[in-house]
Amino acid sequence: MIMTEKELLAKVIADLGYHPQTDEDGVLHFMFQMKTVCVIPGDEGEQSPALLLPNFAEIAENETHLVLAACNQLTRETRIIKVFINDTYQMVHASYEFYYCDEDCLRENVKRALDAFAVIRTMYARTKNRLQEAMTNK
């Protein structure tokens, strides 16, 4: 029986020891180190899914520019992770998008994404503080 990409993603995540679940909107998600990670399958036949870490930091009033600068710096420096803010300018998200050729490749990519998600909140906080200090000292 051929698995759909979503089923394969759920299998790989379960093999890694996590507990994938599907919510009422059909979104596959799982808990990783107290963070909810969502899995977005790619377009039909593309084998290009994405892992999304939504809402990992809140944006306080009047700090949108600072947060945008921090997101930009993190996206540039981490390379494999995109860090961005949502349409309402209230929350910060991170995503990891990739192509894979087979199940092993998919597993390695999921592990890489999780390694990055494990520390992205700390990296974000440090980057934001550093930028804040630099702006204050100008």
């Binding site: 996590y18 507990h19 808990m31 180190q33 107290m34």
Partner: peptide, 16 residues
């Protein structure tokens, strides 16, 4: 036991 409860909670929270 406390140990079993805590380990179960840690796994549910996504910790290895």
């Amino acid at each position: 036991t406390t140990k079993e409860h805590v380990l179960e909670a840690l796994h549910a929270l996504g910790f290895e």
